[in-house]
Simulated scan of single mutants.
Amino acid sequence: MTNTLAIILGVLIVAAIGVDYLFFGTEHLVFLAKKFMSLIEWLAFWR
């Protein structure tokens, strides 16, 4: 992955989080963070 591609992906992720926050509030972000932590723990188990 090149630096340019990493920056573009990072900006897209931050923009998507910003749009979600503006339109729907913080409840979805908390839910997604909990699910993401669960996914990381599950992946660590299978490592």
Rank of each mutant, 00 (worst) to 15 (best):
M1D: 09
T2L: 05
T2I: 03
T2Y: 08
N3P: 00
N3Q: 15
T4I: 12
T4V: 05
T4A: 12
T4S: 14
L5M: 12
A6L: 14
A6Q: 13
A6K: 13
A6E: 12
I7N: 06
I7S: 03
I7F: 07
I7C: 02
I8A: 14
I8Y: 09
L9Y: 05
L9P: 00
L9E: 12
L9N: 05
G10H: 03
G10E: 04
G10L: 07
G10V: 02
G10A: 07
V11S: 12
V11T: 13
V11M: 13
V11H: 01
L12I: 09
L12Q: 04
L12A: 13
L12N: 07
I13G: 00
I13L: 10
V14E: 02
A15R: 01
A15T: 13
A15V: 10
A16K: 01
A16L: 11
A16Y: 07
I17M: 14
G18N: 02
G18Q: 01
V19D: 00
V19T: 04
D20F: 03
D20L: 13
D20M: 13
D20P: 00
Y21D: 03
Y21M: 11
Y21R: 10
Y21H: 11
L22Q: 12
L22D: 02
F23E: 11
F23R: 13
F23N: 07
F23Q: 12
F24E: 12
G25W: 01
G25F: 03
T26F: 12
T26G: 04
T26K: 04
T26W: 08
E27F: 04
E27N: 10
H28K: 13
H28A: 07
H28F: 05
V30N: 01
V30L: 10
V30T: 11
V30S: 05
V30M: 03
F31V: 10
F31N: 08
F31H: 04
F31C: 00
F31G: 03
F31D: 12
L32Y: 15
L32I: 06
L32T: 04
L32V: 07
L32P: 00
A33P: 01
A33K: 01
A33F: 08
K34W: 04
K35I: 06
K35S: 07
K35Q: 10
K35F: 05
K35W: 06
F36Q: 08
M37Y: 09
S38Q: 15
S38I: 02
L39I: 09
L39W: 15
L39A: 13
L39T: 07
I40C: 05
I40Y: 03
I40Q: 03
I40R: 03
I40K: 05
E41I: 06
E41W: 03
W42A: 15
W42E: 15
L43H: 04
L43F: 15
L43E: 14
A44Q: 05
A44P: 00
A44S: 05
A44W: 01
A44M: 07
F45Y: 14
F45P: 00
F45V: 12
F45Q: 13
F45C: 03
F45I: 14
W46E: 05
W46M: 08
W46V: 09
R47P: 00
R47A: 11
R47Y: 12
R47L: 13
R47K: 10
R47F: 15
R47G: 10
R47T: 11
